[in-house]
């Protein structure tokens, strides 16, 4: 058997870090040795933050986003427009849309998209709770903001069919050219979408 070169606690941390996305064995050992030599309070702060992460974070029972409180900050903000729900794939998509400062409605996070090859079916997504919201809340519009990938489109179409009843308007995020982009470098599919979605001016 090979001699144990690295002390057991360090080895254990390295293995734990290697399981994180984007971290290989090399980065893991570099992080482990950095933490070994770092000031004690910095390490404790990190340990505490990791420890509290799963305890303090909950799913908002309304929009299914990750939050510290239930309902989440957005759902409990009375200044938000309660008549519109923006449906997104992941919590980070909420962050992206919030950054625009243009949207003032509510959200609904699906936590994934329909992808049969990966074994993800509608029942694996938070769709049931979206349909309940449509019944209970004074919703006038559902804006579907899944990604313009094939799986995102499949999810959007599936949702639209379920939602399109009872006077609710179902809309889809527009597709087209990026701002500051160059027509010459746009791929044909994007450009043809932009042509289809042209606007009166």
């Amino acid at each position: 058997m090979a001699m144990q070169v690295v002390a057991e606690p360090i080895q254990r941390l390295i293995e734990a870090l290697t399981r994180l996305p984007g971290i290989g064995p090399k980065s893991a050992s570099r992080l482990a040795f950095y933490l070994l030599r770092a000031p004690a309070e910095q390490v404790q702060e990190l340990a505490a933050a990791i420890g509290e992460l799963q305890e303090s974070i909950v799913y908002c029972s309304r929009c299914q986003n990750l939050s510290q409180q239930d309902p989440c900050e957005i759902c409990s903000d009375p200044s938000r427009d309660m008549h519109i729900i923006c449906v997104v794939e992941e919590p980070l998509d909420v962050v992206a849309i919030e950054r625009t400062g243009v949207y003032h409605g509510l959200y609904h996070v699906l936590h994934g998209v329909i992808n049969p090859v990966e074994g993800i079916r509608p029942e694996d997504l938070r769709i049931e709770s979206l349909l309940e919201r449509k019944e209970k809340e004074p919703i006038r519009e559902v804006l579907i903001a899944t990604n313009p990938t094939m799986e995102g489109e499949a999810t959007a179409m599936y949702l639209a069919r379920l939602l399109r009843s009872g006077g609710v308007r179902v809309t889809r995020l527009a597709r087209g050219l990026p701002v500051g982009g160059d027509l010459e470098y746009a791929d044909e599919v994007t450009l043809s979408r932009a042509l289809e979605g042209r606007r009166e001016m």
Partner: peptide
Amino acid sequence: VQELRFWNDK
């Protein structure tokens, strides 16, 4: 029928 609809169309 519901789940196949999109893939059939595509």
